[in-house]
Each structure stands twice: as structure tokens, then as C-alpha cells.
Design a protein around this nucleic acid. Structure first.
Length: 297
DNA sequence: AACCGAAGCAACCGCCCACGA
DNA sequence: ATCGTGGGCGGTTGCTTCGGT
């Protein structure tokens, strides 16, 4: 005997898997726009889930919090963005995939579908994040006790950092040279800095050669190369100047214009090729370091 | 078919802050 | 000014479901 299946035979009841059309209509799922808005709001408000929830009609704080922890956090991590600070991740684990990312970023700019553009933008962000990590590792090597003793090749950069620590901020100075060391250090002290693997763990420091060796194979289309990074040899006190490092933009989604349309929906416009490193585009440290030991501005 | 791991979700717990006595 | 209380909020945990082997 047994009872018959609940819905069999009932008029108008469809059984079976959801169709794509039904999926779209199904309530509860976060839309792309909502996703972007959450990221944007999180960059501004942090873990103020209740505040974020007030901007998302029909969503509870717990709902958003869960969605963040299970989806968006991983998504940002995958993009090389620290989901806590909305800044590039500071561990060096991304370096392994850097060449491909840089290549992808080099190809960025082509027209495509909205989805495609977003993906390419993500790739660019990853590349930029990795680029920033290179700088962090470099400065860390120069400024921490992890390096037992400055090797000859290190002297130049140590000297330039010391010489340029006069305190001028130089941020966004549009071409004026002179690095603000404290700013550089501050950049490197962003959270997670302590999680950076000591550069000397895997390979004893022996000057810039080791550091530059880390970059071998990199540089496709991004002005990065071990040669340019090397700045080997030369006398100390060389006229090395680098552009100041502007802090990365607080959050990628800041480049999105998100509006609550008042109807329970949210519309977001993503500006193309936005990057948390737009401010870092002027970072010519990599480009300015020449192989003659003198790094020109 | 059973087992295992991952993912998603709801609920619980503890902390913090505002407010009143 | 201080202490107690209640509410709100965020972090964490545990249960359930799903997919893979």
C-alpha cells in the first residue's frame, strides 16, 4: 500500500529539476548586483551586517553574513583581495600564479560581455595584487631583521630609503619623486604583514640578486622583470628615486556606482578596468630601477 | 548503496553599548 | 558618577543537505 507521492497527479504541479528560467525566478538567491553592493558596503562599513542589511531590502543581517562567509569571502580571496581589509593579500602564495595573471592583465582591455569584462577585471586585480606583494616583499627584505646583514647589492636601496626618509609624504604627487619611507613601511605593515613568510627562510639573503631572482620569469607585459628590479651593484648613494606609493584604493567595489532604486532592487554600474592599484600605477619602483645600479626617476 | 567531505544555513552565545535607577 | 539591565550585534558552532567516490 503506502501512500502515493504527494504531488503526483495533482493538476498544475510540476515535478523534477528546476529549469534555468525557474532558477532565475526563484527567490532567495543573491543577485550579482546585490553581491557587488554587499562588497561595496562591507568595504565601507566592515562587518556591520545589520547596517548592510538595511541597504538590502528583504535581506537579514544573518543572511548577508552567511553569504559573505560562504561565498563572497572566498571570491575575494580568489581575486587576491583580503576580505577583511579589502586590500591585496599580503602573503606571497600568489606569486606562483603571477606570470599567467600578468599575461592576462596585459591582455586586458578587450571588449566583451559584461561577465567577461568582470572576469578580466578580476584577473587584472589579481595581477595588481601580486605586483603589490612583490613590493611588500622587497621592502620587507630591506627593512626587517629577517635579512641578517645587508649584502652589497642591498646597500643601494637601503641608502636610498634612508636618504629619502625626510618625511615628505609625496603621495599622489604626480611625478614628483622621492619616496616616503614611512609610507612604504606603512604599506608593509598592513595586516597580514606578519604572515609574510620570511624571505630568508627559503633562501638566504645575498643582496638584491636573491630578491630579484624571485621575479625571474615574471614581467610579461607589465614592466616587471628581474632585470629591472635588480638594481645590482653600483656605488651606494646612487640617485635612485622612486615615486611615492599611494595607498591602494580601499576597495575594488568603490569603483562601482551602486544605487538602490527604491523598488527593492539594486543597480550597480561597474567601471571598467578599475583597480585597487590605480594609485599604485604610478609606482615606478619597478620601472625605475635600472641595471646600472642607478635608478632613474 | 553506503560513506565521507564540503557547503550552506539557522541558531546560539558572548560581548558591547545605551539607558535608567 | 556608578552600577545594573536589556537589547542589539557579530562571531561561532552545529545540523542538514548535497555531491563525489
Amino acid at each position: 500500500m503506502g501512500r502515493s507521492p504527494c504531488c503526483d497527479g495533482e493538476a498544475g504541479v510540476k515535478k523534477g529539476p528546476w529549469t534555468p528560467e525557474e532558477d532565475k525566478l526563484l527567490r532567495g538567491r543573491f543577485t550579482d548586483d546585490e553581491e557587488k553592493l554587499i562588497i561595496h558596503l562591507h568595504s565601507l562599513l566592515g562587518n556591520k551586517w545589520s547596517s548592510i542589511a538595511t541597504k538590502l531590502p528583504g535581506r537579514t543581517d544573518n543572511e548577508i553574513k552567511n553569504y559573505w562567509n560562504t561565498h563572497l569571502r572566498k571570491k575575494l580571496l580568489g581575486m587576491g583581495i583580503d576580505p577583511v581589509t579589502h586590500r591585496p593579500r599580503t602573503d606571497l602564495s600568489l606569486l606562483a600564479g603571477l606570470p599567467g595573471l600578468l599575461a592576462a592583465a596585459g591582455n586586458f582591455g578587450g571588449a566583451g560581455s559584461a561577465t567577461g569584462a568582470w572576469d578580466m577585471n578580476a584577473l587584472r586585480l589579481q595581477a595588481d595584487a601580486a605586483k603589490f606583494q612583490l613590493l611588500q616583499g622587497l621592502v620587507r627584505a630591506l627593512t626587517t631583521a629577517a635579512v641578517p646583514a645587508p649584502a652589497p647589492g642591498m646597500d643601494n636601496l637601503m641608502a636610498l630609503l634612508a636618504a629619502s626618509s625626510g618625511g615628505q609624504s609625496g603621495m599622489n604627487n604626480g611625478g614628483q619623486h622621492g619616496v616616503d619611507q614611512s609610507m612604504l613601511l606603512q604599506q608593509c605593515q598592513w595586516d597580514g604583514m606578519n604572515n609574510l613568510p620570511a624571505l630568508t627562510n627559503s633562501a638566504p639573503a645575498s643582496g638584491m640578486h636573491n630578491i630579484s631572482g624571485m621575479f625571474d620569469g615574471f614581467g610579461a607585459g607589465d614592466g616587471l622583470s628581474s632585470t629591472e628590479l635588480g638594481c645590482h651593484g653600483g656605488a651606494s648613494g646612487s640617485n635612485v628615486t622612486v615615486d611615492a606609493v599611494a595607498p591602494p584604493r580601499p576597495m575594488v567595489a568603490n569603483d562601482q556606482e551602486c544605487n538602490n532604486n527604491g523598488g527593492g532592487g539594486v543597480s550597480c554600474e561597474q567601471t571598467p578596468a578599475s583597480s585597487p592599484f590605480d594609485g599604485l600605477e604610478s609606482l615606478n619602483l619597478m620601472d625605475d630601477l635600472n641595471t646600472d645600479g642607478k635608478c632613474h626617476g
